[in-house]
């Protein structure tokens, strides 16, 4: 399947390195808007076609492509999305624009293979929704909460100026994709040097009847599944069960399971501490390959 990357920043460049290794996805172009962009230079050095003329260039050649990866920003994608669809291009959206349904490769991507546009939520959503889904697969989860901590250096201006989009989009994915009754997401930036690896903590509220062993096994196999496409994704500790009941304004939770995760990046382009960016680009490739597996190339 022939694809293009729109956006030549950090995410677009890291994604390029991963796509160049894919068997079923052929990277045809990297599209930017700044002729001086480092990302375009790197793409061109690797023999990938590039343009600084933006999406108009791509739409003029829409027949040469099947799939476009959006690695710009939410407001740019909201403008581009209808144009891609009109041109018959499928879109995988790495911004929090949420034009199409939210997908997480290890949880629900097969449900949305036909969608013209799919959204990859946020890095925190990719890292934590699978754990919520793993717990919800074996027992009701009345409430799920996640804390994502990323190195300050790995949070670009887009994330910083739109931090509410992260918390809101991620929180709703815990419900929509993860299957929790309610969801809340928290993001923390940590400036320590050397930069910390991305950390995610997932709290799932449990009922009295929940089978602890089943939960632990389900989390374990989900971690294995995610690490098949994000090799640096791991549990720092076995899941921790806290049986202290907690009263909240939304009622009593009888206990909780806590999963402490760490995500080390593959270091394709971005440094290993930027596991938050790696998990997005790795998920993007996985989703693209799933789409390619069911589509007959035009």
């Amino acid at each position: 399947m022939r694809c293009a990357i729109v956006g030549s920043g950090n995410i677009g460049t890291d994604l390029m390195f991963k796509l160049l290794r894919s068997d079923s996805l052929q990277l045809g172009a990297v599209v930017g808007i700044d002729p001086g962009s480092e990302g375009l230079r790197r793409a061109s050095d690797l023999g990938v076609a590039t343009t600084a003329d933006g999406v108009d260039w791509l739409l003029d050649r829409a027949a040469e492509f099947d799939l476009v990866y959006e690695a710009t920003s939410a407001h740019v994608h909201r403008e581009n999305a209808p144009r891609y669809e009109e041109a018959g291009l499928k879109a995988v959206d790495l911004t929090p624009a949420k034009v199409g349904p939210a997908v997480v490769p290890s949880v629900n991507q097969l449900q949305h293979l036909d969608a013209p546009n799919v959204n990859l939520i946020t890095c925190g959503g990719q890292a934590t929704t699978p754990i919520v889904a793993a717990v919800a697969a074996v027992t009701p989860v009345p409430y799920a909460e996640i804390v994502s901590t990323v190195a300050s250096r790995s949070a670009g201006p887009g994330t910083r100026q739109n931090i509410d989009e992260f918390t809101i989009t991620t929180g709703s994915s815990l419900v929509d994709v993860g299957g929790a009754g309610r969801g809340k997401a928290i993001i923390v930036l940590n400036p320590a040097e050397p930069p910390i690896l991305m950390r995610n903590t997932v709290f799932c509220a449990l009922t009295k009847e929940a089978d602890r062993q089943q939960i632990e096994e389900s989390i374990g196999s989900m971690v294995e599944e995610v690490s098949s496409y994000v090799p640096g994704y791991r549990l720092k500790n076995p899941p921790i069960f806290d049986e202290t009941p907690v009263d909240t304004p939304h009622g009593r939770y009888e206990g909780r399971v806590i999963s402490l995760l760490e995500v080390e990046g593959a270091g394709d382009f971005l440094p290993a501490y930027a596991g938050n960016l790696d998990i997005m680009t790795a998920a993007a490739v996985r989703v693209g390959e799933a789409i390619a597996s069911v589509e007959v190339p035009a």
Partner: peptide, 11 residues
Amino acid sequence: VVGGQEDMIID
């Protein structure tokens, strides 16, 4: 660790 990282106490 910075403010907000209460989860790291459990870790």
